[in-house]
């Protein structure tokens, strides 16, 4: 990781630590927990989409797999939450491997369709496998998770818990991007043929990054489950998959920071728009449209542009 990223990471950490001391309203803290959870998946998806250039419109499935593994194993079978957490990761990465091998041979819109189909099938299974998942009514009574003997049972504790995970995942992702493997992933994005001709095993790398992003999704899912202590299929459908893609693109695909900003915007915006009632969906669509038309490189692209202008002036 270079200096700029380390510094930004440091500033972010400081802001995050200070935040709950300034804003004590639990509603805002709780919204920030969801920003963190969505941010973790979005960072994973950004590695896949922004870095390696492979789209997935089915990532809600991995979020759901993590969430349901934690929910079923802890609430119904009495597993230890951390044990369920890691089994969720295992399950998601195995499924990512099985789905990834045939899917990632596909290109462009065909890949979009395949991942979309996978996401929808998973969603239907969550709904129909009533014996295990509880069907549309979901699973409740999920226990809290413990960290070093402390129950993560308040918004503020969960806030620090989730954002610690996010910072860890962000650091690992930045490391990955600025490495031999990250460079190879970016080469796939630009020209898969040329990357292959330069000795990059593109099929293997695409599957690996798909698995990594699935693992991040699963982690977020487990964190979600132990926070809301209730899961039902409606949180893991096509709409959420599309929302994730939008977080990555609106924030700026070329950077994991973009994914984080996108996750923040698209998690916080609906909370503000709620006051508009029926007009919410309308304003939401308009905001997305305007950002895409006027900031093709996303919010982070816009910020970079402003920052560079500022530097030039000084």
């Amino acid at each position: 990781m270079d200096k700029k990223n380390s510094l930004t990471l440091l500033i972010l950490t400081v802001c995050l630590v200070v935040f709950p001391f300034i804003v004590t309203n639990t509603y805002y803290i709780s919204t920030m927990v969801f920003v963190g959870i969505n941010g973790i998946i979005a960072i994973g998806l950004s590695l896949l989409m922004g870095c390696a250039g492979q789209i997935s419109i089915g990532h809600a499935a991995f979020f759901g797999l993590g969430a349901y593994t934690s929910a079923v194993l802890t609430a119904k079978l009495g597993f230890h939450p951390w044990c369920a957490f890691f089994l969720g990761i295992l399950l998601s990465s195995c499924i990512a491997l099985i789905i990834g091998i045939p899917s990632l041979k596909l290109k462009g819109h065909y890949l979009a369709m395949a991942t979309l189909g996978f996401g929808e099938i998973t969603y239907i299974v969550f709904n129909e496998l009533t014996d295990i998942t509880g069907g549309p009514s979901g699973i409740g009574g999920i226990p809290k998770i413990y960290l070093a003997g402390y129950a993560m049972n308040t918004d503020i504790k969960y806030y620090f818990f989730v954002w610690a995970f996010l910072l860890l995942i962000l650091t690992l992702s930045l490391n990955l991007i600025h490495s031999r493997i990250g460079r190879a992933l970016r080469s796939i994005h630009d020209s898969e043929v040329a990357a292959n001709a330069m000795g990059v095993n593109t099929s293997k790398l695409k599957i690996q990054v798909f698995m990594i992003s699935a693992v991040f999704g699963s982690v977020a899912g487990s964190l979600y489950t132990h926070y809301v202590t209730f899961v039902s299929p409606s949180s893991f459908g096509l709409f959420f998959s599309i929302l994730l893609v939008m977080m990555v693109v609106i924030g700026g695909m070329h950077s994991v920071w973009g994914a984080l900003i996108g996750a923040a915007l698209l998690t916080i915006l609906p909370e503000f728009l709620r006051a508009l009632k029926d007009f919410e969906i309308f304003v939401y669509g308009a905001v997305l449209l305007l950002i895409m038309i006027f900031l093709p490189r996303g919010l982070i692209g816009g910020l970079e542009y402003l920052f560079n202008r500022l530097i030039k002036k000084v």
């Binding site: 490391n175 490495s179 493997i181 190879a184 000795g199």
Partner: peptide, 21 residues
């Protein structure tokens, strides 16, 4: 970086050592 891609087949850092730097 374009040229560094060319070094890919002659180097060996894998996913794990990359992630953990």
């Amino acid at each position: 970086e374009n040229v560094m891609i060319g070094r890919h087949p002659r180097t060996s850092s894998g996913i794990m050592s990359s992630i953990l730097s």
